[in-house]
Amino acid sequence: MANDVQGITGTPAIVGARLGNIPTAKSTLLPAHLAWLDTQAIPRVKTRIAPWIDIIGYASRKGDVAFNQRVSFQRCEAVKNHIRLRLGQAEFNVENAKGETESLGDEKNDDGYWRAVEVYVFGFQPPEPIAKPTPSSPGSRQFKIRIRMGVSASPPFLSGPQGDAYYFEVVDVTRRLHAIFGYAGAGLALPTFLPSFLSLSGTGPYTNFTTSRSESLSSFDGPAQFFGDPGITIGPASAGGLVRLALESRTLVSHVTLLNPSIIPISGGAGVSVTAASATRGVFRMLTKAVPIVGAP
């Protein structure tokens, strides 16, 4: 006895089957036929580019030739209607109702093998998605910083309050970009013996620092703390007086990016200053666009 669904291999089709045992003189598809169409044929039609379906209808030799021709066509139509019901629209390239022309046996043969429809699904495999290039890191992990100029002010005779206004050049070493950052903050200072009011610093040397993740220059924009070590500077001569910068921008915090060193020690340039010790809190702002470095930084 023929199977209700018999897979067909060895053809160029993606999937093919002979749906047999359709009731005699009828075109009603069996549950097994519908299941195969729903689970094997239709999903493949959906996932292929420009798919099409070929349908070949058959009939057993029992009965009138013309009737068998008609019933094989109706069996093809039954398959088409079911697929259209599921997909809405589909491309049927071949619909060939062969009637009993290829059926074997005598005039009374009613073998279920011949009461059948062959269904073939064709289509093209979608190309593999093109791998997108990995986006290059938007920043760098190697930076350096130097003071371009800075002024600290602490009122004479009033020991305690201090204001800092410093300008730093921060260099993205990897991408060879640099930008100016300004720090403005207020805090406290230990009194000094010289009531100089202003402590001044010119352009100093670079200090290298790294970040645990790639960051752009604008990532450093945000709150910061600024510390002044004890020291004295008169012109180019200097003893002590390092400044230390702790960057606490929201971007760095949200990226969980750590700086090494966490508090960056920076030497000042030529200037005039007498500092006992100071600590201020303020904002480290990116004041200019990051521009390419021309020549050696």
């Binding site: 002024v151 204001g163 206004a165 410093y166 300008y167 970009l177 930008a179 300004g182 720090y183 403005a184 752009s216 220059l217 604008s218 924009d221 904002v283 702002r285 990116m286 004041l287 200019t288 666009k289 990051a290």
Partner: peptide
């Protein structure tokens, strides 16, 4: 100190 206090951030 005025430029450091008043300038706006320039996104990179």
């Amino acid at each position: 100190s005025l430029p450091a206090m008043t300038s706006v951030v320039t996104p990179e």
